[in-house]
Design a protein around this nucleic acid. Structure first.
Length: 215
DNA sequence: GCGACAG
DNA sequence: ATCTTGTCGC
């Protein structure tokens, strides 16, 4: 895991990928929602990634995969997708269940160049994707109401790029933004439909798998 | 120069 | 992200 600087072509690639993001409503609530996440060893040299498929109706995970790979790049704000993207793509390719939407732990278009992890991979996959971050990367917002479902717009340069969404009563809000083939209203509806706890089940379960036995 | 900064 | 135990609260 080396490389301290950022390849000169990365920012330009993000700009190009952002242009390919499709904003469109997603009808209804998907039956199967995929979720992915990654954990790192203390030495920072190994990544353990997990992907799951969650059945919204049955409220349970129906498929799961875990892989370990050496870390190639360090974490650099705004370039998370280059660090986690390759591993996640490999993992997503192993999914057999027909998932309709995929959720990522990170921003969608709520990014300086409109290309956060969910937008970046959503475009490469050409599938509906949603960014669900536990904290803010950029933009400003008002504190949403304290009840589950309350939300306030996340603004960047005066334009709405996402929402601060309170998924459960009294918990810290999540930052939801579209990744691809989705619109903000649909994304909010889908995230809330998957929330048993603060973090939606797809990414929450993937996160749990991710922290399990790094043998 | 001083903060801010997904995971 | 990861290092870390108990502890306060619903």
């Amino acid at each position: 895991m080396k490389m301290g600087k950022i390849p000169a072509e990365w920012p330009a690639l993000q700009i190009e990928l952002a242009k390919r993001v499709k904003v469109e409503p997603f009808a209804g609530i998907p039956a199967l929602v995929a979720g992915v996440d990654i954990a790192f060893t203390a030495d920072g040299n190994t990544a353990q990634a997990a992907a799951v498929v969650y059945s919204v109706a049955e409220k349970r995970i129906i498929e799961q995969h875990v892989i370990r790979r050496p870390v190639k790049y360090p974490y650099v704000p705004n370039f998370l997708s280059f660090r986690e993207g390759p591993i996640l793509q490999e993992l997503i390719a192993e999914l057999r269940e027909p998932w309709e939407v995929i959720m990522f732990d990170g921003q969608g278009i709520a990014h300086p160049r409109d290309c956060g992890l969910a937008a970046h991979l959503g475009v490469l996959l050409d599938r509906p994707a949603i960014g669900v971050a536990k904290s803010r990367l950029c933009g400003e917002h008002e504190e949403p109401g304290l009840t589950a479902g309350s939300h306030s717009p996340l603004l960047l340069d005066g334009k709405q790029v996402g929402i601060a969404l309170r998924t459960r009563n009294g918990v810290k809000p999540l930052f939801v933004s579209i990744g691809n083939r989705m619109d903000l209203e649909s994304a909010r509806r889908i995230v809330l439909a998957c929330c048993k706890y603060r973090v939606p089940e797809p990414t929450r379960q993937a996160d749990i798998l991710t922290k399990r036995r790094k043998t």
